[in-house]
């Protein structure tokens, strides 16, 4: 419930006017994302956070979802915390081409004028959000890792990651309160894992409202020609965004599988000194004291034991997944996900 509205009902302003059918700049919206027929974890996290902000700031939570064959995902949005779920289900929304979703969301925004919009980063947050923000003169913060209500200014402050998450900067809005008729929408595109995933509450009530989609309203300019083979050029591994790192305990027999994984995942191959001595990688692909410092988004270490001279080179990696059979391997001291297993076993099933 919006505080202004509450005041009005309490008779504080004397005159009670009936609220518009759509209240401008009063709601917190979450734009959900679907992957493999389900809501992504980040969508659930955003709904959880939206609920928190809503109770702090006095607002309703609305969710928007677009795609095809969405089934009862609308209800799930309710269970996770939305008061109203606006669901646009249309075959033309099946692929994530940009123009139709932009139109659909744009129409919704124009109609409902949200105070706050939370979106998962990824295709929606990186491609749609900036265009929407520009179109509706909204503020947008991407790479968000934390959101705080500022109760005195009734606005939302965000921390966003810079330098690949090395540290965060805070952003606040300069204008007046977020909530209220003269506001502008505040948009946030949030990194996965920033917030706790809430438990769904099946008994929560809310309404699911279908959104009419008119595919003929837009003419798409970007077309998908089709899949294509592509070999990424070999760049210096210090610039690589995804790295598959090999270590001696991977085993010679698994090297080709690791290579194939790197190719499929669009990652660069690297490794520690032992992998270079074994001839699996070149010496200019060595990570650590004797080679390069790397700072990828994801560092997947396969059979890398993780001696100091290796670990020092990958400290700036944003997320580290390590697979090694020895639970005491020192790679696990720097890994975010530790998988104690034979890398070969896992590779065979990937």
């Amino acid at each position: 419930m919006d505080l202004d509205h509450l005041m009005m009902m309490l008779g504080d302003t004397g005159e009670v006017t009936a609220p518009d059918t759509v209240q401008s700049y009063r709601d917190i919206w979450v734009i959900g994302q679907v992957a493999n027929g389900d809501l992504t974890a980040c969508t659930a996290q955003l709904l959880g956070k939206a609920r928190e902000l809503a109770s702090d700031l006095g607002a309703y939570v609305r969710a928007g979802l677009f795609g095809h064959d969405l089934g009862d995902l609308g209800k799930q949005l309710i269970a996770l915390g939305a008061d109203v779920a606006h669901v646009a289900d249309c075959p033309d929304l099946a692929d994530l081409s940009l123009e139709l979703p932009l139109h659909v969301l744009g129409t919704l925004l124009e109609e409902f004028k949200p105070a706050v919009i939370l979106m998962p980063s990824g295709v929606i947050g990186d491609q749609l959000a900036p265009r929407l923000a520009q179109r509706f003169n909204a503020t947008l913060t991407t790479q968000v890792v934390a959101l705080r209500p500022d109760l005195s200014s009734r606005a939302v402050m965000a921390d966003y990651a810079v330098y690949n998450g090395e540290f965060y900067e805070s952003r606040s809005i300069l204008a007046g309160p977020t909530f209220g008729p003269d506001s502008a929408t505040q948009m946030f595109s949030v990194l996965p894992g920033a917030f706790r995933t809430p438990d769904p509450d099946r008994y929560r009530t809310g309404t699911v409202e279908p959104v009419a989609v008119d595919p003929s309203a837009v003419t798409g300019r970007v077309g998908v020609v089709g899949p294509t083979p592509y070999q990424r050029p070999l760049v210096a591994i210090s610039r690589a965004q995804r790295i598959v790192a090999l270590g001696f305990d991977l085993g010679e027999e698994n090297v080709s599988a690791a290579r194939a994984l790197a190719e499929r995942w669009g990652a660069h191959l690297a490794g520690d000194r032992t992998a270079a001595s074994a001839g699996w990688i070149d010496y200019n692909q060595v990570v650590g004291v004797t080679g390069y410092d790397v700072a990828p988004d994801v560092y997947l270490a396969l059979g890398v034991r993780g001696n100091t001279e290796h670990n020092v080179g990958m400290e700036r990696a944003r997320f580290v997944i390590a697979i090694h059979p020895d639970p005491n391997a020192s790679i696990f001291e720097v890994a975010d996900w530790c998988i104690v297993a034979e890398p070969g076993q896992i590779l065979a099933r990937l």
């Binding site: 913060t141 934390a146 540290f167 965060y168 900067e169 805070s170 952003r171 300069l174 720097v334």
Partner: peptide, 14 residues
């Protein structure tokens, strides 16, 4: 500008 950046935060030590 509509917004202002300021203040710094840090991830928890690994």
């Amino acid at each position: 500008p509509q917004t202002r950046s300021g203040g710094r935060g840090y991830p928890t030590p690994r």
